[in-house]
Design a protein around this nucleic acid. Structure first.
Length: 426
RNA sequence: GGAGAGAUGGCUGAGUGGUCGAAAGCGCUCCCCUGCUAAGGGAGUAUGGGUUAAUAGCCCAUCGAGGGUUCGAAUCCCUCUCUCUCCGCCA
């Protein structure tokens, strides 16, 4: 959520910032009207409560002295009805405002590039050179089928489109990748591994920003408890600090978690329908940071570097792009995407997205910290990034490490995880 | 799944329907005393919101959550959630 105080004190600045995204989510008149009603009603309601409280005390004291309290009670009853009306009205305005605010995307950082579509994203740097192949390159679909390692047909029998069954060396390769990434982040980047639920309830998803606006992207269980399948580990991991006031010496928190991710992909019909790029279920290693506010900008750079290290160690060519205003996700203030080279598509494709949410999620979750200087608690900043998406990393390895005979060379850093195996073949 | 107990401030733990945002203890902060240490004395110490130039005052709300009864609820009633104990079942 955007700071409600900022909405009141400098609405024009907020509107201008949201306009950079191409968003007109904030209806100025509707907001101003609701806010004015809220203000009037809240003051009136509180004053009514004040006099209700005072009268109730007076009645108590009169009763203690044995005086006749009947007339006082009658007056109080009428006042109580007026109060109840005010409270109901205030409640309705408040939830109206709340609804408006939950629907607003985050404010963008000043250095987010202008632009409305992904064409305006700005490449920041490249690492590695796409390899030259001395034979016709195949994509992961063909390679996977040849190796009997990726089986879309079986998956569709079980679950329909956008699922894959992995077998043999390819399945092991994905597991090795996950293990490698976890170890890297734990041992070299100082993350704490967490294991979290894959089913969460609505408040957690509201905390990170998927709800109420993006319900159609989620899978929901037909269960009276209202479970949702997590679309990313960001949801359960970031919500670990929900409703907490952290001490200064507890920050920064750096969590890494491997989880499956579940996405309905409603509205992505026709996109990446072939292959493993866009699936309903995929594996991901996620990095989450909870930091003091003045650390978050620098943390985004470190977080991105941690994800890049994965690709460097796997020797996969990639580039980093800064998402432009229109492409930055709902809750993020700034995002870097890491795109890995896919020879089969002759394109860079997203394999990680690293974002600074600033206090957007923290405000929704009530995640705060004390600076230790005796000041009041203030909101923490949260960040997250894929470190990296395992399914897509698997594709990248298959395509970049393919050999003339259709086998896949195993990247050196993964070989220890596969019992020293150097090649995956039929 | 069955039976029972519980949920109060950073922690422990009182609380009769009325002046209770809440005793007391511990912890913490500041001050005083004491030539180290130990001990002692005093003051302060929740969160959110409104108003405001103000992190000054003043006001409102909050005793697991949500409803209800009442002039008035931490206290009474209902529903839910979570925790603990016992039984059953299970990886």
């Amino acid at each position: 959520m955007i700071d409600p105080k900022l909405l009141r004190s400098d609405l024009e600045q907020v509107i201008a910032n949201l306009a950079r995204r191409g968003s007109n989510a904030l209806d100025r008149d509707a907001f101003v009207n609701a806010e004015e009603r809220r203000k009037t009603l809240q003051v009136e309601t509180e004053n009514l409560r004040k006099s209700r409280n005072e009268s109730a005390k007076a009645i108590g004291m009169a009763k203690a002295k044995g005086e006749d309290i009947a007339p006082l009670l009658a007056a109080q009853k009428t006042a109580g009805e007026t109060l109840a009306n005010h409270e109901a009205e205030l409640q309705s305005v408040t939830s109206q405002l709340q609804e408006i605010q939950l629907g607003l995307p985050n404010l963008l950082d000043a250095d987010v590039p202008e632009g409305l579509s992904e064409d305006d994203n700005v490449e920041i740097r490249r690492w590695g050179e796409p390899a030259e192949f001395s034979f016709p390159v195949k994509d992961h679909i063909e390679l996977g089928e040849t190796l009997s390692g990726i089986d879309f047909e079986s998956a569709s029998k079980l679950s329909g489109a956008r699922f894959a069954v992995l077998r043999g060396g390819i399945a092991s390769l994905q597991r090795a990748l996950i293990q490698f990434m976890l170890d890297l982040h734990i041992n070299e980047h100082g993350y704490t591994e967490v294991y979290v639920p894959y089913l969460v309830q609505a408040p957690a998803l509201e905390g990170t920003g998927q709800l109420p606006k993006f319900a159609e992207d989620l899978f929901r269980l037909e269960d009276e408890r209202g479970f949702y399948l997590i679309p990313t580990a960001e949801v359960p991991v970031t919500n670990l600090v929900r409703d907490q006031i952290l001490a200064a010496d507890q920050l920064p928190l750096q969590f890494v978690a491997h989880t499956p991710c579940f996405r309905s992909e409603a509205g992505s019909y026709g996109q990446d329908t072939r292959g493993m790029i866009r699936q309903h279920q995929f594996e991901k290693v996620e990095l989450v940071h909870v930091v003091a506010p003045d650390e978050s900008a620098a943390t985004l750079e470190r977080l991105t570097a941690h994800a890049e290290t994965v690709l460097q160690k796997l020797e996969l060519p990639y580039r980093v792009v800064a998402l432009c205003a229109g492409d930055v996700g709902f809750g993020a203030a700034k995002t870097y995407d890491i795109e890995v080279w896919l020879p089969g598509q002759q394109k860079y494709r997203e394999i990680s997205s690293c974002s600074n949410y600033r206090d957007f999620q923290a405000r929704r979750m009530g995640a705060r910290w004390r600076d230790g200087q005796g000041n009041k608690p203030e909101l923490v900043h949260t960040l997250n990034g894929s470190g990296v998406a395992a399914g897509r990393a698997l594709i990248a390895i298959i395509e970049n490490y393919q050999q003339a005979d259709g086998s896949i060379a195993v990247p050196a850093v993964l070989q220890p995880y596969l019992g020293g195996k150097a090649v995956i073949s039929v």
